[in-house]
């Protein structure tokens, strides 16, 4: 630091302003066009793919589920999609479904190709999206009944040569008893994931792009299918409408959020937000929107 002087800092600032602000403006200009493409095509792509995939999944799963129930996930672990072991049949079902769906690389390819402009590797290296959900993991007042985790890794996966970037997605639904265990652990789940990533760099890639945790506050019905998906979807879709156009990372994040939201909508046959606005199922909407906003805001610092 002794060598660092004010003159250099001013020089650095000038360089940043000249070089990076111009990029920012170009990104903003392109953002609207890509978002429009997403909105026009994403639902169709997902629904088409989902219909086929869900049918295949059910058929495959029903054939073999007696072998796996309570033991391992019905979806074979691969290096491109890592599926955590699950403890209950319901977790298996949810996790397996999500993993199976996301194994459709044509969908990922379509997204990545369309958004090649955003240079995913670049975003990884920039660390702009190392979003963590400290809010949920560490805030004891959110020690609730259920939790849904989506962890998206963007990294170098040598087995996926088709794309510029590989995508590894882990999704897990925690049941009531497991959430209690997690919250009682000294080491947080996030740290466990980080440790796992550190120990398995070739499997996971080196970067965690998004770590999204949502908790279900409904401790009466404890029913994911009917409650939290609607809230998540509503929150994600709502957030998209509230994007700050001046935010450099908004296009990328909205892509992810729209993707996840539409995915959930497709898989769980959720209605669109406009179809159930003001209904009881949206009681957690504002909280989730706030949460996601906080998630976004904390990502870059």
């Amino acid at each position: 630091m002794e060598k660092l002087n004010k003159f250099f800092v001013e020089k650095l600032n000038a360089f940043y302003d000249e070089e990076f602000q111009a990029d920012l403006q170009r990104d903003i200009d392109k953002e609207d066009e890509n978002l429009k493409w997403l909105q026009d095509n994403l639902g169709r792509l997902l629904n088409e793919a989902n219909e086929k995939l869900m049918s295949e999944f059910k058929e495959s799963y029903n054939k073999v589920k007696f072998k796996f129930e309570g033991l391992v996930n019905p979806i074979e672990d691969t290096t491109d999609i890592f599926v955590a072991h699950s403890d209950t049949s319901r977790e298996i079902r949810h996790t397996g479904t999500l993993a199976y769906f996301l194994k459709n690389k044509e969908i990922l390819k379509a997204f990545l190709h369309k958004f090649n402009k955003y240079d995913f590797d670049n975003y990884i290296e920039k660390g702009l999206f190392k979003v963590t959900s400290e809010y949920c993991l560490h805030n004891k007042k959110y020690n609730k009944e259920c939790r849904f985790d989506i962890i998206i890794f963007f990294g170098s996966d040598k087995n996926v040569n088709t794309y510029n970037s590989s995508v590894i997605i882990e999704a897990k639904v925690y049941s009531k008893e497991n959430v209690y265990k997690i919250n009682q652990m000294e080491v947080t789940q996030k740290e466990l994931y980080q440790q796992t990533i550190a120990e398995n760099p070739n499997l996971f890639g080196k970067n965690t792009c998004l770590y999204l945790t949502l908790e279900n506050e409904d401790d009466v019905t404890n029913n994911f299918e009917n409650i939290i998906w609607l809230d998540i979807l509503a929150a994600l879709q709502k957030y998209i409408l509230r994007i700050n156009q001046g935010n450099k990372k908004s296009a990328y994040l909205s892509f992810l959020q729209l993707w996840i939201g539409s995915f959930l909508g497709a898989v769980y046959k959720c209605p669109k937000e406009k179809d159930f606005t003001d209904k009881k199922s949206l009681k957690n909407k504002d909280k989730l929107i706030d949460f996601i906003n906080q998630l976004i805001d904390s990502g870059e610092d």
């Binding site: 660092l4 800092v9 290296e125």
Partner: peptide
């Protein structure tokens, strides 16, 4: 020498450089 905004800029430059 650098406030939080300055640190943020350096991070962006760093990540661009690494990329």
């Amino acid at each position: 020498l650098l406030n939080n905004e300055g640190c943020k800029k350096i991070k962006e430059i760093k990540n661009k450089l690494l990329n």
